[in-house]
Amino acid sequence: MPIEIHTPLLKVSSLRKFFRISNSRIPILDAISFELGLGEILGIGGESGCGKTTLGKTLLHLIEPTSGKIEFQGLDLSQLSPTEMRAQRQHMQMIFQNSADAFNPRFTVKDILAEPFIIHRLHRQVDLNEKISTLLNQVGLDTHYLKRYTHELSGGQKQRLAIARALALRPKLIICDEPFSALDASIQLQTMQLLTKLQKEFKLTYILISHDLSAMRNFTHRLAIMYLGQIVEIGPSPAVYDQPQHPYTQALISAIPITNPKLERLRKPVILKGELPNLLQKPQGCPFQTRCPHATDICRQVKPLLQEITHQHFVACHLRLKV
């Protein structure tokens, strides 16, 4: 069930990010606003190129936002000095997409897990060896991996190591960028179980970025769907999943294959025509109009804003289709 937000851990308001390519400014994130409660798991879905990863990185100020405000535990991150920001980074971590590339290949498992403590100058205050073996233990890796290099680990083990590293400084918020892609179903399940266990144990808050919505329905409390740098729908996961309101969400959900050939044959996925519009010539009005099967005149002129249709379920669509 969705968690009622009493004290938001993270509050994002009108976040914008432009990238500069030659002489044009490309809007990658466009007026993103949401709140995240302590202990909540928020899923962010959408096609590749819609800005999911940029959003994740911007939230941690790994990329500076162009405008807008990110408040973490009541602190406006853009007002912090580099030293203060560094202190806050202990509480916010990221598990990067493709764990294999996120490690220094010349580091052993031990080096990788020691690095966060060294960066934050904690290595003299704590018993590093003990900390590292506890971390390995928590993610279910044996201590005999300490001297191994990452190329010696399997995909699932690397994923566990990435989780252990993110967990090292006991953060409050972890942003997981595609933690399940490229893993077999059984390993995906193990990773998911591990993330849940750790979430309960340490009262973690997750933002889970994934283009694969199938696994997110029951794992996340709330689900946000992004299109061209905007959130087009956000709400409690079961509601977004079972009663998607935005035509784009409907297409995404209908495209998930189900593992029952008899039912699968009866289903007709909504096939979206065309490609994402060029961001340099982003259309006026609704960003989805070029591919929307229901687009009308108002969609071509006025940009729809997020509106609450049922409790906590927001949609940015003029038509607000019923399924």
Binding site: A185, L189, M192, S214, N218, F219
Partner: peptide, 10 residues
């Protein structure tokens, strides 16, 4: 494992 993944309840 595919079914467990889909039915996985947090």
């Amino acid at each position: 494992s595919k079914r467990n993944l889909l039915a996985y309840a947090n």
